[in-house]
Each structure stands twice: as C-alpha cells, then as structure tokens.
Design a protein around this nucleic acid. Sequence first.
DNA 1: CTGTTAGCGCATTCAC
DNA 2: GTGAATGCGCTAACAG
Lengths: 336, 336
Amino acid sequence: MEKFTIKDIAKLGEVSTATVSNFLNGNYAKMSATTRERLANIISKTDYHPSTTARNLAKNENKTIGISVADITNPFTSPVISGLSERCEKYGYKMVFTNSNNDERREVENINRLREEEVAGLIIDPVNPDSSIYNQLSNAYTVIVDRQARRNVVDTIVTDNMNSVDTMVKKMVAKGYDDLYFVSWPLDGVSTRLNRYAGFKLATNYLNDDHLITVPYNTSLNKSSDFDQTLENILANKGDKKIGFFTMNSRTLLQLLKSAQRLNYNYAEDFGVATYEEFEWMQLMNPGISCVRQDSFAIGCAAMDLLKEKLETQYDNEPEPQVKLIPTDLIVRDSF
Amino acid sequence: MEKFTIKDIAKLGEVSTATVSNFLNGNYAKMSATTRERLANIISKTDYHPSTTARNLAKNENKTIGISVADITNPFTSPVISGLSERCEKYGYKMVFTNSNNDERREVENINRLREEEVAGLIIDPVNPDSSIYNQLSNAYTVIVDRQARRNVVDTIVTDNMNSVDTMVKKMVAKGYDDLYFVSWPLDGVSTRLNRYAGFKLATNYLNDDHLITVPYNTSLNKSSDFDQTLENILANKGDKKIGFFTMNSRTLLQLLKSAQRLNYNYAEDFGVATYEEFEWMQLMNPGISCVRQDSFAIGCAAMDLLKEKLETQYDNEPEPQVKLIPTDLIVRDSF
DNA sequence: CTGTTAGCGCATTCAC
DNA sequence: GTGAATGCGCTAACAG
C-alpha cells in the first residue's frame, strides 16, 4: 500500500542498499554508529517497511503455516485456532486460514492451494480423518488435529478420550452405581467413539457389550424412539439399583435427557449421568451436568509446538507418525 | 517444499520461460497446440507449481486480505469468518488470520503486522471500536465488522440492532402487553446498546426512560442483587397487567431468569420475555425463548463483498465511511 | 508462434 | 564499514 523501497531509503541515507539491508536485519556490526542512527531516523520518518514478499523470495523461506479446518462453526475448533494463533505469534509465523465447511472436496482444494502458497507447514483439522488424501502429505511438515484416523499417516494431536472417560466413569463407580451404561452413536470404527468406549470398559470392567446403548446418528430429539423403549426397560425394572449413564457427546446426552423427560424420569434423581463435551447450557441447567471438557486450546498449542519442532529439524526420511493425547478437565457437578 | 522452477520445465519442454509463463497464465493463443500439450504433460508429471511469492513480486500485487478478530472464541465471530472465507474463495483471495484475544495492544500489533505483509485489504473485528487506532487506516482498503464506533471512520458492517428490536418488541406489543421493560447493561454511549434501546422505544412509544432497567456489567448470576428488588417491585404489583421484558443480550437474559427463579416467578407464565442474541440453550429450554438471531455469516459475506468492491475501484480521495446494516432473523418461540 | 530481456524488492557474497 | 553485483522465480514488454 506504500511506495518506498529499500533503494529509496538507501538514496536518502546516501548509502547502498546493502547497508540498509544490514540495518534492517540487525547487523549493526557492519556499519558505523552514525549511519546506523541516520538510517533509523529516515526509516521512522518515511514509515518505510520492507516487503515481506521480496524478502521471502530472496531468502527462499516463508514463515507462514497453512491451516485447514473442517468447520469453523464447530464450537470446538475456535479454541484450537486460538491456541494455534497464540503459538504462531510466539514463533513468528503467520497463518493463512481456510475453512472446508465439512466438504471433503473443498478440503482437498484448500490443502492444494495452501501447498501452492509454499507454506512452510500445514495444520489440518480433517473433515474425514480416514480419507486417503492425507497420504500425499509428508509427515515432515504437517500435523493433524482434533480427529484421529484409524491408521494415521501423519502426526496427530487429539484429546485424551480414553483416559478422560475412564477417570470420569470411575468417579461414578465410586459413588456406588450398580449399573452403568455407555450411550453412543454406532461405533462404526470411528476412533473417537472407540476410544471413549474403551475408557468406559476400563472403568467398569464390563467384559461384553451388554452395557453399550447405541442410538442412530440422526434421530429427532422430539419424537419418541427405540431409545425411549430401552430406557424405560432399564429404569422401570431397576428396583433398588442405582443406574447411571455416560453419554459420548452432547447430542446423545440430549437424546437421553429428552427421552427421560418423555418418560417422566429426572436425571440426578432417578438416574445419574455424565457426558463427554461441555456446553454452556450444561452449567445453566439445574442440577448442573458433570462433563468432560476437552482442552481445545491446548490442542492448538501442542499442534503448533510440534510443527515448529518438525520444521526446524532435518529428516533424512519422514518421521514415524505419532499421536499425542491432550489431557482434559473433568467438571463434576450434581448430575450423578 | 519442492524444487522445480519455471526454468526447469522450460528446459524440459525445450521452450523459453516466457512460453511456460504464458502457459501457466492461460495465454494459450501465444503458442502452438503441440507445445501447449507438451507443457501440460510435463507440468503434470513433475508436479511443478509456480511460486506465488515470485508471482506476487513480479506482478506487484497480493491477493490476500488480512483479518484481525477481537476474540476468535466469541461464538458470534466464527460465522463471520465463515462468511469471509466463503467470499475470499469465491473472489480468489486468501486470508491471513490474526486473533487479538480482546487485547487492544495485541490488536495494534496484529494490524501493523498485517499491513507490513502488504495485504491488499484489511477486515477488522475491533476490540474497542472507539479506539483511535482505526483513524490511521485508510477507508480505501479496510472494513470493520460486528462492532460500530460512535463516530466511525471506516466502512462498518453490523447487525441491524434497531430494526430487529423494533419489530420483535412490536410483536410483544401486539400480544397486548401492558408494560414492557428493556433490560440492559448501562448504556454508556455504546452504540450497540443505544441502537437496541432505540428500537425498543420505537416499538413502545415510550417517551422517557422509565422503562429502562439497567444492570451492572459484572454482577454474579447466583447472588441476589438490586435487580431482584426492582423485578419484585414490578411483578408483585402488576395486578392484572401483562408484563414483558426485552433483554439486550444473553447475559442480561440470564440475569432476569435467575432473579425470577429466586423470586419464584416463571417466565411465559408470570411475565413474557424475548432477547437479543441466540444461543443453543434458548431452544432447549422449556418453553423455548424467543430471540433475535443475528446473521453473522451474512456480515462476513457483506464485509468481503464491500472490501472487494473498494479494492477494485480507484479513488482520488478516500471514500466517505458508511455503515451497512444486516437484517436479522426473528425466532419466535413460546416465551411471550 | 516463440525467445530475449529487464525488472519486481530484497539478501548476500565479495571486493574495496 | 561500505557498495556493486548477482540472483530468488516469475511477469511483461518487445523483438524476431
């Protein structure tokens, strides 16, 4: 938006462009104190600032990372971006940002565009972590966040699903619940669900899947469903037993809550409940709902930390992909 | 991340770099069909892609816009970004993104950094719209979103506060409410609040401020407050009158709801209520809460539309700053 | 139709 | 301590 170049200020300072360049890069050893001061003056007066484009070209480096998020609108991705942005600033990277709006095709376009921009690295919040497109990405300059592939080919940072469920459900066990149930969308080999369920089994020591309740992915909240039936079966026959549920996310929690409402059961009173994911309304409800709050900010930070580290080391061959687990916060309220 | 340059593929194609450049830019008229095909082949085989940096330098243009958001974590900014990203893609811009985390100092840094990147334009979701720092920005290449300054110096896109409140409150009036109250944080000259209140007065025809209830900015939701008192005064003495409240945002709504709960009044039953802002829990509550849903996505779109238009026209002197209002959706549920 | 050439703004030897 | 020269990868005349 300006017009001054390094030449202009070289002329004004009556020095060569090289000296100016040195000044700009802090190589003050290579000039007299007087020219240094003169340059400082001129530059501040002209509000000249070097062209990053030109500099990138000359140095053949580009301190920017490309970001592709599946869905900016998802409440869990904002904190991730916040963490990324924090670290980018800290490390002197700028971030160019793309949103795929849950569209795999668009994600591919975004990633390709990002690569053409010659970004130094890539951070991807994948639409479908099991897609094959990530195979083309080198693990040397990319990291995946938030969603874990069944077989991951690049480093990924995700919330510690298994352990958080384990410790939360252990708290329920400790309160003397006789029967605990895990309410989930169909497992379908999705790693998030599998890992959360694994945590549940770990805490409860259930050996088979008798305590796994599955609800279809897209059931209406406001119509009675099969789930009403199984809930009624459990609750009507519970006798003196304490019954508890752990729901794998907020949607299944709502499913449970709505069903219970239809059947005239109250949570906390007639049964205990805790859930993965935190939303504001869980705190507003009365009694408040215990939940696992994932630390998305930390995921963003860790992702950029990892990426920076990878970018700074020279690999003779691609590093083995790892997955790093980020611990969660357990929010215990009065729902169990 | 690659190594092929235009020279390499020129050599491979046994043509000059100029021809390759023409090919890349779609100037197929300037070459024979055979060389065109040959080039296409070679390029696809080598997975060569031109350096955007070099291209930007050569063309002295930079199809990127800089974005500075006050707080990525605010649920209303995600849709704005979504809209921006939509339009950026459409118009062929890429976006470099910064987050200020509600810190004015950081915002200044971000904006300066963005300008140094030689972005073509700037879109700013301001931390404090009344800050003086926006005075330094030319209206020729920047637009502000979401928050309106008292005296705005650059084009601004905001939600249509006044008209949405007006039409929502008119719906309450139509339902025969005898007394309507506007619950708000102290007006304090903040344009958002002023405009919403103006809409309220427009709908109710109240001439003075007797129906404005002010609650301090930072009162705890869970302790009884002065507000409890004034609410009790109104509700205890209402007689046969229908009483309604319009709250200026979700926080003041919660204030109202919690106070009512403490005083054993029920909304919808003992009084009517509607609010600015929509959150998921308003839909979950029973009865659902009527609210004004601002179309943040549209704000993002409009902002980028405007910016693009400005970028493409040559101004002899800076254009007069305008403010554009984005209409909202009125969600009527059962709370009044 | 194709090649030559001169920049774009800056960084970096290598002389002086 | 300083400056001229060269190149980063590409574009845009201008010749041929």
